[in-house]
Simulated scan of single mutants.
Amino acid sequence: MNLFRLDGSIFPSVSSSAEIADRAEAEWTAAHPDGGVNRRHLGTDPLPADAWVHATVGSGTPEPERTPAQNEALALAARLAGELESADAVILAVPMYNYGVSQHFKTWVDLVIAGAGPTNPLLKGVPTALVTTAGGGYGPGTPREGWDHSTPYLERVVGDLWQADLTLIKCELTLAATTPGMEGLRDLAEQQRTRALDAARDTGRVLAGV
C-alpha cells in the first residue's frame, strides 16, 4: 500500500493544514504499518515556476528540437503525475493564500496535468482527503462570503478532473488565536479545529480501508 501526501503550507512548523493532515496520516499508518508514504512539500521545496511553460511548449515540439529545459520539465511533469497514479490513497493539505490557491500549488497542478494529460482521471476512485484551511471566515453571512476562490478550484481539479473519491475537510479562522481583532472568534475557531481533526481521524480510517 502506498500513501501520497502533499503539503502546501509556507509555515510548516505552525501549519493548521499539516496538523489536520497528520491526524489522517496517523490513522492510515496505523492500519498499514508496512505501507509506504511518499511525501512532497511544496511550501519548503517549491517547483520551478517556469517548468510548466517549458513542459507545455516542449510537448508540442519535436523531440530532437527540444531544449534541455524542456526535456527536464517534461521529465518532472511525468514524475509528478506518476506519484499520484501510483498512490492507493492521497492526502492533500492545501492552505488558502490571498483568497485563492498559492502559486506553488498551482504550478504543481499545472505540471501534473502536463504530465498526465488534460483529461486523464488519474485519481479515479482513489480515496483522497483534501484538507484546506483559511485564516479568516468565508462562509454564508460573513463579510467576505464568496471570497474563497480556492476551495471550488480544488474540488473541480481533484474531484471532477482527476475523479478522486474525494473527502473535503475545511477549517477556517485558523488565525483567530494570534490575530488582534479576532479575539471574539476564538471559541468558534477552536470548534472548527476540533471538528476538522475529528473529520481527519475518520477520513484517515476510510483512506486506510478500515
Rank of each mutant, 00 (worst) to 15 (best):
A30R: 15
V53Y: 13
A30G: 15
G43M: 04
A49M: 12
A26C: 06
A51H: 03
G36Y: 04
R40Q: 07
P62A: 12
H41M: 08
L42V: 05
G58I: 12
D34W: 07
A30N: 12
H41E: 11
R39T: 10
T61N: 11
G60E: 11
S59R: 15
A24W: 05
D34Y: 07
S59C: 06
A30Y: 06
G43S: 03
L47Q: 00
S59Y: 11
T56P: 00
L42T: 01
G58A: 10
A31K: 03
H41R: 14
V53W: 13
D34C: 06
S59F: 14
T61A: 12
V37C: 09
P62H: 09
D34S: 09
G58D: 01
P33H: 05
D34V: 06
T61Q: 12
A55C: 06
H41P: 02
H41N: 14
H32G: 06
A55R: 03
P48T: 01
D45K: 13
E25W: 05
G58Q: 10
G43A: 02
G60T: 12
P33G: 03
V53A: 13
V57H: 05
V57L: 15
V37I: 15
V37T: 10
V37K: 04
A26W: 07
V57P: 01
E63D: 13
R40I: 10
A55P: 00
D45H: 09
L47R: 00
R39C: 06
N38R: 11
T61G: 08
W28E: 03
V53F: 15
T44L: 00
E27C: 10
L47F: 01
D34M: 08
T61W: 09
A55V: 07
A51I: 09
D45T: 14
G36C: 06
W52K: 01
A31Q: 11
V53C: 03
H32Q: 08
T61Y: 09
N38A: 11
T61C: 13
H32P: 06
